[in-house]
Simulated scan of single mutants.
Amino acid sequence: MKIVALSGSNVGSKTRTAMDYTMKAIHKKNPEADVTLIDLAEYDVQFSDGRNYLEYDGDTGYVTKTIMEADAIIIGTPIFQASIPATLKNIFDLLPVNALRDKVVSILVTAGSQKHYLVVEHQLKPILGYMKAEIVQTYVFIEEVNFYRKEITSDDVFLRIDRLVEDTVVLTETYTKIREAKEAEYDF
């Protein structure tokens, strides 16, 4: 199983802190999984210009191809000005419309306000649905009060991240089995 943990901003530290813990949780519970962390702060990703994702090279080509090859994606994103970051939206723009078909996608959000959960419901989930993702319905929402000196301070947050990882893996395995059974029905 290939899992991509996508830290969807090129600024700030809270989302990356949460994604680092998520990576540890994946490795602990599923050591056999092929896991890649893509922190958009570490890559020079071009703005989408409408080309096929395979035509991009460098960091842009690496990021898009890695996402396309994944079975599951855990998206970590901060909420800025009541919206997802432009860096994350650009990743969606670089990918084809059906890029997330047959992929399980789960969400982890860091936000400064309780009301920012609306961004997930009204912006992020509709984009993922449009791109045909199998969305893990529950997501981890982490407020600023749960961080201190670049560390998560809430045991509840740790439990919720562990559960998100578990749900992501279980759904990915389940959908894989369903697809394999469906494909086995064909005789060619």
Rank of each mutant, 00 (worst) to 15 (best):
S13F: 13
P126G: 07
I178N: 07
L95H: 08
S83N: 10
M19K: 01
Q46L: 15
F141H: 09
I178S: 10
I73D: 02
K24W: 04
S106N: 06
A18M: 03
Q123H: 10
D39G: 03
A5P: 03
A99E: 02
V120R: 01
H116W: 07
T64F: 09
K177Y: 06
E69V: 05
I38F: 10
D162P: 00
D49P: 03
A41G: 10
V169C: 10
K89T: 08
T172R: 07
T110Y: 08
E183H: 11
P78Q: 12
I67C: 00
T15I: 03
T176M: 10
Y53N: 01
Y62G: 00
T60Y: 07
D93M: 03
V11Y: 15
M19A: 05
A99H: 02
A184N: 12
I3K: 05
D155P: 04
D20L: 13
R149I: 05
G12P: 08
E183K: 09
V35P: 05
G112N: 11
K14S: 12
E134V: 14
R163A: 09
P85N: 07
D71N: 13
V119R: 01
E183F: 02
M19Q: 04
V136W: 05
M131W: 09
V104K: 10
L159F: 08
K28C: 01
K24L: 09
K14A: 07
I38G: 00
Q46F: 06
I152R: 11
L54C: 02
I38N: 02
F188W: 15
S154D: 15
Y175Q: 13
N98E: 15
V4E: 04
S7K: 00
F47N: 13
R149A: 14
V119N: 00
N98P: 03
E121F: 01
N98V: 03
K14R: 15
E144K: 13
E185W: 14
I91E: 06
G112M: 11
T60V: 03
M19W: 05
D156S: 09
I26Q: 01
P96Y: 08
E173T: 00
D49H: 03
F80G: 08
F147S: 01
T153E: 06
I152P: 07
M131T: 08
A41F: 01
G129Q: 08
P96M: 11
N146P: 04
E180Q: 13
K65Y: 01
S154W: 09
T87M: 12
E42I: 02
Y186I: 11
Y62T: 10
N98S: 14
V97S: 13
S154Y: 06
E144R: 13
R16D: 12
E185T: 12
R179T: 11
I152G: 12
